[in-house]
């Protein structure tokens, strides 16, 4: 049964990918791409990767789609018919693909419990993390403790993207209120009321995801995205300018910086306490308690940095005026 779902979902994914390649209407392509991401998330669930599915749904189907949509709102909706010859790229792709299939025929079989990936490094995470880190969600243990340094890099990546977008878009002309594309939708009573009910719930859910990542799927990254999503929804319904009243540029900038520095700062504190960088054991007498404090703080850093950066990305894109 599990196999069957897997096979069918993957086949659907392949079909959606082809359709994405063939469509000329960019708006439809993007919506299809959102579906593609959701399908991917569903496949991740069936492959036991719940944390990844959560993130893919929030980021791939959510944030990426919104960013690309805001971009076509500023550029062009349809693609020009390509005058490129299709033949050469197709040939390159088919030859590479066939070579790859040939090159991977001896891969360890799918779902094989004796495959090399399941040996060596991974068993320690599964067997000992509960005693060494003390969290039921092994993904969180690996993410925020064993490979915490990678996660710090990840926060810096998102921060870098935020800075880069600000560098790029700070000079473009900003939308003037009446002329903008993104008018508020306050005159739609249903949207308005539904969003008023939803937004507090979404925020509550974000907090739950933030602090419950030790036990279930979730953590700082997902929480940050959901938190930003609540305000993105607010912005779409009540207008960007109203959102900006709370989240001015410099506030978001401070928040993003705070998040990154909180993460790196935990590492610096552990250095001063005589441990290696990000070795949470030295935070308190008791190792497990130290791990808990450390993970709590770095996840908080991730959440703050991600929420601030995502929100600022959305607002920055929405404020650009359409050039003629």
């Amino acid at each position: 049964m599990e196999q069957l779902i897997n096979v069918i979902l993957l086949a659907m994914l392949a079909i959606v990918a082809i359709a994405t390649a063939k469509l000329k209407d960019l708006f439809a392509t993007i919506i299809l791409f959102g579906i593609y991401s959701l399908l991917t998330a569903a496949i991740f669930v069936s492959l036991d990767a719940v944390d990844v599915a959560f993130t893919e749904a929030a980021v791939g189907a959510g944030i990426s789609t919104i960013l690309i949509l805001s971009t076509i709102a500023l550029t062009a909706r349809t693609e020009k018919p390509s005058t490129h010859s299709v033949f050469l790229p197709l040939l390159v792709v088919i030859v590479t693909g066939v070579t790859l299939v040939y090159g991977t025929l001896d891969m360890p079989g799918f779902a094989d419990p004796d495959a090399p990936v399941q040996q060596h490094v991974a068993p320690r995470y599964l067997n000992d993390s509960i005693n060494e880190v003390g969290m039921p969600n092994v993904v969180t243990s690996v993410l925020a403790s064993y490979r915490s340094y990678d996660t710090m890099g990840e926060v810096v990546v998102i921060f870098t993207a935020g800075i880069s977008v600000m560098l790029l878009l700070s000079s473009v002309k900003h939308r003037e209120d009446e002329l903008g594309n993104l008018k508020d939708l306050k005159h739609h009573p249903i949207l308005l009321y539904v969003s008023q009910i939803m937004i507090p719930l979404i925020l509550l859910f974000a907090l739950y995801v933030q602090f419950h990542g030790d036990f279930g799927p979730g953590g700082g990254f997902q929480a940050g995205v959901i938190f930003a999503a609540a305000f993105i929804l607010y912005g779409m319904i009540n207008g960007i300018d109203n959102t900006r009243k709370i989240f001015q540029n410099h506030i978001l900038r401070w928040l993003a910086v705070t998040g990154v520095i909180l993460y790196i700062g935990v590492g610096v504190v552990t250095l001063f306490l005589g441990g290696e960088f990000l070795n949470y054991n030295v935070l308190t007498e008791d190792n497990l308690a130290g791990q808990h404090y450390g993970i709590f703080l770095v996840e908080l850093g991730v959440g703050i940095a991600v929420a601030a950066t995502m929100l600022s990305l959305f607002l920055t894109f929405s404020e650009v005026r359409r050039s003629q």
């Binding site: 990767a49 944390d51 990844v52 993130t55 990936v117 490094v121 991974a122 995470y125 599964l126 092994v138 993904v139 243990s141 690996v142 993410l143 490979r147 990678d150 996660t151 890099g153 990840e154 990254f221």
Partner: peptide
């Protein structure tokens, strides 16, 4: 869990 962590990144 390791591939999951890598892909989150």
């Amino acid at each position: 869990p390791l591939p999951h962590v890598l892909i989150l990144t």
